[in-house]
Design a protein around this nucleic acid. Structure first.
Lengths: 102, 102
DNA sequence: TTGACATAACTATAAATATCGATATATCTC
DNA sequence: GAGATATATCGATATTTATAGTTATGTCAA
């Protein structure tokens, strides 16, 4: 997790919203049967929900991934994104340590 | 405290550093005797330490103030800035609530 | 192999941000 | 009041970000 990249990634309401949506897989359309066991969500579903172009969302997800906030996993033609809960928590810890007066 | 503005204000390493410096008044040159009781730091000291132009720092401090992370107080020709600890804490709480899975 | 599809990478443009120097404003001192 | 000082504001430019369209890449299915 990279603090600078993470803050930059979060400095956008749509990306924060996506991170929120990913808390609950069921806020998206059901996965295909063959992907039922996967936790992540494919780009197309996220795009649909966000209402922005495919390229924009792909770029957003790349930023979130580079920031270490989400994990991507390719399965066939699909890329599934899911939150990295540990990284998110440790980001919050780091921000708190940096901001809070000792 | 405004979440969007606060994140934007923190999305810059110098502004985060300033916020850190302000944790400890003694990391700056001593205040004038007539300002000894004040907790804040004047713009010129912050500028000196940051090594950026006066206008840039004045602008930075304005952003931090609008984000609600610092409090400014004018005394004569000087403006003293200090951290708003309560606002910082509640910002951290809000970010945590937004990011962390329930 | 040939399409069809999902996603990523590339290109382009508009908007936002970083940063400075210059100027304006307020205040202090004489 | 005139000049000095501290800060804010304005104007300009360079860089970064947002976003879309287009193209490339990889994979599936017939």
């Amino acid at each position: 997790m990279n603090m600078d990249k993470a803050i930059a990634a979060l400095n956008n309401p749509v990306r924060r919203r996506i991170l929120n949506w990913l808390k609950d897989r069921s806020s998206f359309p059901p996965a295909l049967p063959e992907h039922a066991e996967l936790e992540g969500v494919c780009v197309a579903y996220i795009q649909e929900k966000a209402g922005l172009s495919q390229s924009t969302i792909s770029n957003y997800m790349g930023l979130l991934r580079e920031a270490g906030l989400v994990i991507s996993e390719r399965h066939g033609q699909f890329t599934f994104y899911r939150r990295d809960e540990d990284a998110i928590r440790s980001f919050l810890d780091a921000v708190e340590r940096e901001l809070l007066k000792p």
